[in-house]
Each structure stands twice: as C-alpha cells, then as structure tokens.
Amino acid sequence: MDAFTTHTGTAAPLRRSAVDTDQIIPAEYLKRITRTGFEDGLFVAWRTNEPDFVLNQPQYADATVLVAGPDFGTGSSREHACWALLDGGFRVVISSRFADIFKNNSTKSGLLTVVLPQADVEALWQAVEADPATPVTVDLQSRTVTYGDTTVPFEVDEYTRWRLLEGLDDVGLTERHLADVEAFEAQRPSWLPRALPALPA
C-alpha cells in the first residue's frame, strides 16, 4: 500500500447519496483476478448512460478528490471499489458518512476516506461547482481539508492515521503478535468446527 501524507488536486462533486459499490464498479468487472486495471469499470453505467454525469464533464475529468453525498460505498464488500477509484486517479473520497466495509477497505488499500459534516460537504460542492479548478488539499498530517480560504478539520483515529502515513500493511503488523495468537489457539475448545471432510461417526 502506498503511504498517504498530503494530497492536492481538483475535486469532482458527486451529488448523489447512498452510492453503492455496484455503481462504483459493477460485478462483471469482478471476474478479473488482478489487483489493478479497474479504471474502465469505475462508475461505468453512469459514465455510459448519462452524458452530463459529473465525470463526463471535461472540467472534472482530472479530479483526484471525489466529494460524494452521504452513505457512500454501501452494499457489497468488494475491495475492487477502492481499487477502481485509485485506478481512476482518485486519492481521496469525502462524504458525511461511509458504509463500514468500504471505509475499512479504503484504509487497507491506501485510498483516504474523509468524513466531513454534510454542511461542509455542501460548501465544498458549491466551491468546486463555482470553480472546478479550485485546488483542494487533504492533509493527513494536520487532519485538514483546505480550499480557497477555507480550512476544515477532520477526525481520523490515530492508529489508522499512522498506518496510512507509513503505508504499513496489516499482515506484517499482526505477525509481530504471533505468540499471542498461538496462546489463544492453545485454549480453544476441541469441538469447534473444522472444514476438513468429516469422518464417519
């Protein structure tokens, strides 16, 4: 996972709520067994069927910050949704509320999800609609979103922030606690399920 410290780019206003992961990337693109190259599936139905969809507008085509309505990323657990956004050039998604699994996946794949109150999202929408070239800076060090004269703080838990700043992968961190895992395993009841073929009674 790439480390995230600070990012400056232009922002696309996605005025839709409850954007589900089937819209971010439809299931047919999930047949691939690679971890990259999902940009062609990103919002593909809306890009195909709606000429005025925000990402079809040239002034937002190079945006790297997506500013979405509430409840972004509901539905399927597909991490491909994060990969598609990253492959499509986005480094940050801002919303007033995310679905849990999407938010969790984002922290594993290096996509920064920033929660701001809906009033701040609305103000940011208006700013980037008034001037699509507005640079937006998302700084994970100082936990702020800045555009024009406006700076808005955001919250992120210290552990996730540290992992993202360092670009650390969880497996390596957990392996430091292998002794704890082994101690736990030693006291598990013997009757817990095992997936090996069942023996005849």
């Binding site: 699994i101 969880d170 497996v171 957990t174 392996e175 895992v181 395993e185």
Partner: peptide, 20 residues
C-alpha cells in the same frame, strides 16, 4: 461479517483480524 480482499489475505495468513 463481510470483509474485503486485503482482509481475506490477512485472515488466510494469520487467522485473525484487527477490529474495532
């Protein structure tokens, strides 16, 4: 509960998950 692919890898490797 459902998890993403990075977490699938984590469970395969460690049989655990970091959780809040």
């Amino acid at each position: 509960f459902g998890i993403g692919t990075s977490e699938v890898e984590h469970v395969l490797a460690t049989q655990t998950l970091p959780q809040y």
